[in-house]
Amino acid sequence: MNYQPAKDRYKNMIYNRVGQSGLKLPAISLGLWNNFGESDLFSNQRAMITRAFDLGITHFDLANNYGPPAGSAEENFGKILKKDLSSYLDQLIISTKAGFYMWEGPYGDWGSKKYLVSSLDQSLKRMDLNYVDIFYHHRPDPETPIEETMATLDLIVRQGKALYVGLSNYNAEQTKEAVKILKEQKTPFIIHQPSYSMFDRWIEDGLTSVLSEAGAGAIAYVPLAQGLLTNKYLKGIPEDSRAAKAHIPFLKREDISEEKLVKVVELNELAKERGQSLAQMALAWVLRQEVVTSALIGASRVSQIEDNVSTLAKLDFSQAELDQIDIILAK
Rank of each mutant, 00 (worst) to 15 (best):
Q4W: 04
K7P: 04
D8R: 13
Y10T: 14
K11Q: 10
N12H: 12
M13D: 04
Q20H: 12
G22M: 09
L25D: 03
P26M: 12
P26C: 11
G31F: 03
L32Q: 01
N35R: 11
G37A: 02
S39A: 01
S39E: 13
D40H: 09
S43G: 03
R51S: 11
I57L: 08
F60D: 07
A63H: 03
A63F: 07
G67Q: 06
P69L: 09
G71H: 01
A73I: 07
A73T: 04
E74L: 02
N76P: 10
G78Y: 03
G78A: 12
K79L: 13
I80P: 00
K83T: 13
K83W: 09
S86C: 10
Y88A: 07
L89P: 04
I94W: 00
T96N: 12
K97H: 01
G99F: 00
Y101F: 05
P106G: 03
Y107V: 12
D109G: 05
D109Q: 02
G111R: 07
K114R: 15
Q122D: 09
L124I: 05
K125F: 10
R126E: 04
M127R: 02
Y131I: 10
V132C: 04
I134K: 12
P140I: 08
T144Y: 07
E148S: 05
D154H: 15
A162D: 10
L163W: 11
G166S: 06
L167M: 11
A172H: 04
A172D: 05
E173K: 14
V179D: 06
V179I: 15
K180C: 07
I181P: 00
I181D: 01
E184G: 11
Q185F: 13
Q185L: 15
K186W: 06
K186P: 00
I191P: 00
I191C: 01
Q193T: 06
P194L: 08
S195N: 14
Y196Q: 10
M198I: 07
W202D: 12
E213S: 13
A216S: 14
I219S: 09
A220M: 06
A220Q: 06
V222M: 08
P223Q: 10
Q226K: 08
N231I: 06
N231V: 07
K235I: 00
I237Q: 11
P238T: 15
A243T: 11
A244R: 08
E254H: 14
I256P: 05
S257A: 10
E258F: 09
K263V: 06
K263E: 06
L267Q: 02
L267S: 00
N268K: 00
L270Y: 10
E273G: 06
E273L: 09
A279D: 00
M281T: 11
W285A: 02
R288K: 15
V291Q: 03
S294K: 01
A295R: 03
I297N: 02
S303Q: 15
E306P: 01
A313S: 15
Q319F: 11
A320C: 05
Q324D: 09
L329G: 10
